[in-house]
Design a protein around this nucleic acid. Sequence first.
DNA 1: CTGAAAGCGCTTACAG
DNA 2: CTGAAAGCGCTTACAG
Lengths: 337, 337
Amino acid sequence: MKNKKITIYDVAREAGVSLATVSRVLNKSAKVAPEKERMVLDVIERLNYRPNEVARGLARKRSTTVGVLVPEIGRLSVAEMLSGILDTANMEMYKYSTLIKSYASDLDLFKKYWEDLLSNQVDGILVMFDYITDEIQEMIENSPVPVVVFASATDSETLARVSIDYEQAFYDVTKYFLDNGNDDVLFCTRNYTSALEVQKRGYVRAFSESGRPVNEENILRVYRSYEENYEFAKEYLTTKKPQAIASTSDSAAIAFMNAALDLGIKIPEELEIISFSNTKTSQMVRPGLTSVSYPIYKIGVFSMRLLTKIMRNETSDENKFIEAHEIIWRQSTRKQK
Amino acid sequence: MKNKKITIYDVAREAGVSLATVSRVLNKSAKVAPEKERMVLDVIERLNYRPNEVARGLARKRSTTVGVLVPEIGRLSVAEMLSGILDTANMEMYKYSTLIKSYASDLDLFKKYWEDLLSNQVDGILVMFDYITDEIQEMIENSPVPVVVFASATDSETLARVSIDYEQAFYDVTKYFLDNGNDDVLFCTRNYTSALEVQKRGYVRAFSESGRPVNEENILRVYRSYEENYEFAKEYLTTKKPQAIASTSDSAAIAFMNAALDLGIKIPEELEIISFSNTKTSQMVRPGLTSVSYPIYKIGVFSMRLLTKIMRNETSDENKFIEAHEIIWRQSTRKQK
DNA sequence: CTGAAAGCGCTTACAG
DNA sequence: CTGAAAGCGCTTACAG
């Protein structure tokens, strides 16, 4: 560690010009005589001057920093979206720094981080929340800076957002099962919160349309870890014989699959399984796991792009992007591609 | 979006005190008369005042922000480490904001982001780099702010860092294979850079000790995607019959495993496989994949903690933490637990 | 095209 | 215990 901090004053003195001029060549914000510009640029180079973004932020009242709030950075899908967000934020035309907060699906933590981000004067915020409650929506609507919601279930028609149609995705999967003679469709989900509501709606709709009743007992809350789910599945499948499983969680889907195999239940002949996130694991397991695939990385890219537009006041006619989902058929279903 | 920015001036005026007093109660930096303190606190509450961290950072010359440089945020292990870093950074006693940059394993991008972080006046930097070259090491040593290196291979004895002993891990795995009668040990790695050197050293050492020669052709560079690796493995295993595989990449290990199974090669009887990262997938596949496990989350926690100590000038007698690794034995090896 | 000056919203010696 | 004032390192009208 060394390096004495060198400031714009040093550059101005050394180059024999005023602060203002240095600032102008730095920001290309106004015409500067070519010779002076050269001088300044030379000095900057020689002194290895690096503008202080914090001072800059204060002076121009823009931090060129955006905040990102995610429920759990350790989730593979989240990491993948962050990847899209960061890549976009750092593109030449954008160049935003990103302050990332992972709130562990905890509402209080979410609120705290939200305040933290505002304190840090972010120019905009990207929010991912499994389900946008009224409270969260109100926070967003009262935000002093633009907010874009991504990969979140919501009923709002006004929020700027990019995600997929969760209800439709669950509908599609359930309908496939029902259309193929399965009455007893298990619905496994990890978070038994209101997030469930939007998704459950698709499940219920498919049942209604097919004229069959929904059995509430078939809506299962599963665990976080694979081991727990495996034990649970093994016990469950010993007494009950569902015909099909739709799971929001990859780990639960695979736990059920492995448990079934270990119990001698044939897949997909006796039990069909579809998972709601097409992670790398889905293709590595045997039999391959049929999954709903959606453009995770792209959702990150689009949400950052949308936020940028709004921050720049580019009147975007469209502030809502619903990405298409698709079912990737593998060996855990009778239909295979 | 609404909310007119309210500043410390507004609070001072409203509470009938000076700026300085408000600042004191905000920072608890000096004694303030209890009644005045109450007043100020009340006004803050009522006005919903939120200190501007950017102005604060400028004034006190500390941003309470740290930078994090990772090769690829989308990698599950990276996400998990970030999880540990963020959790620690946000703990009451620390409270650092984190500026995260993912440089796509690109040296130029790394350098750019490095400068960006310094421009943003971070108080410290956490660096992950598959292998710390001399160039990187020099950047770190010349950094104006403290730097902690994590989960990176390096020969440096001076850098503050926390990681595992890569050489030893590769040695352990190779030795297991050699001790159990496998001469033909494939070594699969994704990045054929100097990172390889440190790891290869363990592989080579095990061979030397056992008095057997290393066959350079057994050092394989694999692909990024599972599909490519699967195709490659299938072709490879058709002509060659290795007895054991040590792979730095989970996806390659599983690709070889599935390809072998599809070719009728028995695992582990005819081919043993060990992977170098114990991801969730390792336990979900059948047969279970024996893997080297190391405390990923903990490495994040420790590195952030170490950085904090250095930033606070707490003379840490120890600036190097090497976490223990462990082999989790599953069904892809003859030894199973 | 260029400089002097005010201002961004805070903190922190310095006096008292 | 408290306030006036300088300063953190920039940007940006305002004159010229």
